[in-house]
Design a protein around this nucleic acid. Sequence first.
DNA 1: CATCGCGGAGAACGACCGTTCTCCATTGTC
DNA 2: GACAATGGAGAACGGTCGTTCTCCGCGATG
Lengths: 198, 198
Amino acid sequence: MSQVQEAARPGLSDDELRERVLEAADRLYYGRGIQAVGMDELRTEADVPLKRLYKLFGGKDAIVAEVLRRRSALWETGVRAAVAAAATPREGLLAVYDHLARWFGETDFHGCIFINSFGELGGCSPDVAEIVRAHKAAFQDYVAALVADAGGPRALAAQLAILAEGAQTTAAIAGTPEAAAQARAAAATLIDAAGLPG
Amino acid sequence: MSQVQEAARPGLSDDELRERVLEAADRLYYGRGIQAVGMDELRTEADVPLKRLYKLFGGKDAIVAEVLRRRSALWETGVRAAVAAAATPREGLLAVYDHLARWFGETDFHGCIFINSFGELGGCSPDVAEIVRAHKAAFQDYVAALVADAGGPRALAAQLAILAEGAQTTAAIAGTPEAAAQARAAAATLIDAAGLPG
DNA sequence: CATCGCGGAGAACGACCGTTCTCCATTGTC
DNA sequence: GACAATGGAGAACGGTCGTTCTCCGCGATG
């Protein structure tokens, strides 16, 4: 058995390695913060040669941006699926908070990676700040579209989005998931007060 | 004029120097993040000898903790004053969001330093995480007391706190202050729906 | 078989971190 | 006036960061 273990395989594709790196980076950055995780630890966790890592991504900044973009797409997919499963427009809006509740209940929940990254790097990295801003703006636009489809007033959308944001920070800091249910109840009250059809 | 400019004074008191250091640390940490600001930059900004800095505080962790504790006290003072100026319990609750609106409108607003610090260090520093948790818990307790005094239901307090949190993150990331007014409108709706006397 | 080039492992590099230490001017005391 | 003590300025230290480079074993090619 030579010292070369992995190279015995016909050679892992670039796409496969990118996937491994991004999965590891997501897990490490989300759990401990971006600055706290060095390239060497990422290299070890993903089991990818450092040289290949730099050839595939160019540098840490690009990996961070890619991780955030993937999380954004994952979030969008998840919330859209939750909303699509609802029977009525009103329940579709409330399904957003049920989706949050499931997320908050996961054992490795550590808050919203966009809020966390913005707190960590927003003051120093315009790139990260812009990705976070775009992600949150897209969510607000999505909620606005849901509210419009449901025939609700324009002002309701911003209020519902603020409730979702507040639930995320509250649950993350408290370390408990009940903020989702509290935000859901508040959302239901706001929706009803807006005279939205049930 | 010798090279010793400051020492010509009879000697700055420890309290005075502590104040200068904490003021500079607050400004730098809040604007750019904690890990992005080194002790040398803090030394320069506060114009305090590095040796004295370590004698006064012991280390960076202690400075960070002290900055957060001061911000917590400052926030508590500010929000209590805003509430106290209100004529009725209902307006007292809404005054919280007016206070947020004034804060969001400040030119150097960069979000909530507790949310930011938690995002940056919450996964690595139990000390920071605990200070942030305690600060947010104290705010929730304060809102709960206001709601109780106003005769509102227990569930309303958590909803109002979540709105305040969401407004802070939304305003910080978007870079605009309108989330405060949106949260205030939502709060008014929730308060009215709870049947709280006007 | 000789040679070449690719890719992997990890050392090396410069920069910066938090912290400590060295050196020196100044000051208060006998 | 000699001298210990204080405190300032900044170099030094060990460690870690992101990134690059060196070296070597390997497979492909003539």
